[in-house]
């Protein structure tokens, strides 16, 4: 049966505020899955806590709405148990860059084959607009009692430092390009992260749709090549790292979007496969049942007093 875009939409109506960037992200994700022809029942969306976390309920895939900060570990557990599934983890900026930041670094070091979306609106919307870790030092959106006393973290730079192999930025109101980025991120063999600029019409009166519109531009359309092959000279690598850093830290009159870094490293599943016989084919959720007793006996043989 031919899949339709409508097959990726659940019966539940979103309860986000009118004008919220989350609508664009949901739509882009459904489009990306549809365009890739991924069966809805073979995709698992995993979110944390907050407005962004509700996204999973609006897609007709499997959806896991986890704890604050924990979508990445849950998503990795799903993926490593059943590597045949398409797994997309998502988190708000507080979720992903604050309470869950340790997992961001951890997952980067592993490079599992999954896509991670950061819904970046610089505020904690669900708890009425507190400063998130991506809010600039000194900024004071309308619900803050005083200007922000903490500097912001740059998700692109942190992803780079942590070893993510696909690093991109999208814009929630540019659904077409965002869907394209998501498609690329899902197709990438390894860990892909998209930092999504997502205006919060209710609590972030500084970085609004009107503020972003004239600033965002596509670096790939301007000729930026993100590809980083496995084999390259140190000089070439250094040049690409410098180029990445310049683009990833550009913020102001012009705000870059697109793919910044696209490297090629063995995924965590491949790394596991070099030690675990048959993995990923023998992954715990996909292998046929049976053999448990034999496996325990194999272990026990090593403990015999008289070999």
């Amino acid at each position: 049966m031919e899949l339709k875009l409508a097959d990726y939409k659940s019966d539940l109506a979103p309860d986000w505020c009118p004008g919220c960037g989350d609508y664009g992200i949901l739509s882009a994700l459904q489009t990306a899955l549809y365009k890739l022809g991924i069966e809805p029942s073979r995709a698992v969306l995993v979110s944390g806590i907050g407005c962004s976390a509700k996204t999973v309920h609006y897609a007709a895939t499997y959806g896991i709405h986890t704890l604050h900060g924990r979508p990445l570990p849950v998503a990795q557990g799903v993926k490593l148990a059943n590597p045949e599934l398409t797994v997309v983890a998502m988190a708000g900026d507080g979720d992903g860059m604050g309470i869950g930041a340790g997992h961001f670094v951890g997952v980067g070091r592993r490079n599992p084959d999954l896509l991670y979306l950061i819904f970046n609106n610089e505020v904690y919307g669900m708890t009425k607009g507190q400063a998130s870790p991506t809010l600039e030092l000194g900024a004071q959106p309308k619900s803050l009692a005083r200007p922000n006393l903490q500097s912001k973290v740059n998700p692109l730079m942190l992803a780079f430092a942590s070893g993510f192999t696909f690093i991109a930025r999208g814009y929630a109101y540019d659904v077409k390009n965002l869907a394209r980025l998501m498609q690329q991120g899902i197709e990438h063999k390894g860990l892909a992260m998209i930092d999504i600029l997502q205006p919060c019409p209710t609590y972030n009166n500084l970085h609004t749709r009107e503020w972003f519109a004239p600033r965002v531009y596509d670096i790939n359309a301007e000729g930026y090549d993100p590809r980083v092959p496995r084999e390259m000279s140190d000089a070439e690598r250094a040049e690409r790292m410098a180029r990445f850093t310049l683009k990833a830290t550009e913020w102001g009159e012009r705000i870059p979007t697109g793919v910044f870094w696209h490297a090629d490293l063995p995924s965590f599943e491949e790394r596991l496969g070099t030690f675990l016989p048959g993995y990923p084919k023998t992954a715990p959720s996909t292998r046929p049942p049976g053999g448990e007793s034999e496996r325990a006996r194999a272990l026990m043989r090593g403990h015999r007093v008289a070999k």
């Binding site: 896991i64 570990p73 990795q76 557990g77 148990a81 059943n82 992954a283 715990p284």
Partner: peptide, 29 residues
Amino acid sequence: HPESGVVVVQVEDELAAVNMAIGASMAGA
């Protein structure tokens, strides 16, 4: 002992450990 057939992952903290195991369990492991 890979003959145990167990996917063992050393992770960044106990929060990751427990949530990763929960994810694996949700997927049927």
